[in-house]
Design a protein around this nucleic acid. Structure first.
Length: 134
DNA sequence: GCCAACGTTGGC
DNA sequence: GCCAACGTTGGC
């Protein structure tokens, strides 16, 4: 079991919309590092859902329901998607500010490599974010 | 709206 | 294969 974090701008695809739809394929990744992370996702892995730009907080937990396959929105073989379904909302969003301020989280990719949109998390980092949500 | 970070592209 | 120019992302 691995843990991940994905970013989405609420303006484009919000946690609320994701919950209404119940399932989505995670498209739009056009960065090799992010793509490699998508490829490494396995069914059942847990994924934190982060709202970038607006909100700037981790808002919920999703899980991988289908491993990576060709991105249906392009013929370019370089790009893949995974299918995700929502698991639950966090009791309280955990903001970027809190994550940066946390001794155990200040080194995660979300902070260190701001532009990466799909990143791995260690189990203890995942747990810590859930813990911060109360 | 600005700018820093950083990935990608293309000329040499 | 290097590196400058350019584009994109995302925090502020």
């Amino acid at each position: 079991m691995n843990y991940w974090l994905v970013k989405s701008e609420p303006f484009k695809y919000s946690w609320e919309k994701f919950n209404k739809e119940g399932r989505t394929f995670w498209d739009g990744v056009r960065n090799y590092q992010a793509r490699n992370n998508l490829r490494d996702m396995k069914e059942g892995d847990l994924v934190l859902f982060y709202h970038s730009n607006e909100g700037k907080a981790v808002v919920g937990i999703a899980k991988v329901v289908k491993e990576s396959y060709q991105d249906p929105t392009t013929d370019d073989k370089n790009w893949v998607v995974v299918d995700l379904s929502p698991v639950e909302s966090l009791k309280r969003p955990v903001t970027l500010e809190e994550i940066k301020a946390d001794e155990r989280l200040k080194d995660i990719s979300l902070v260190r490599q701001g532009r990466l949109s799909v990143m791995p998390l260690k189990a203890n980092e995942f747990d810590r974010i859930i813990e911060l949500a109360g």
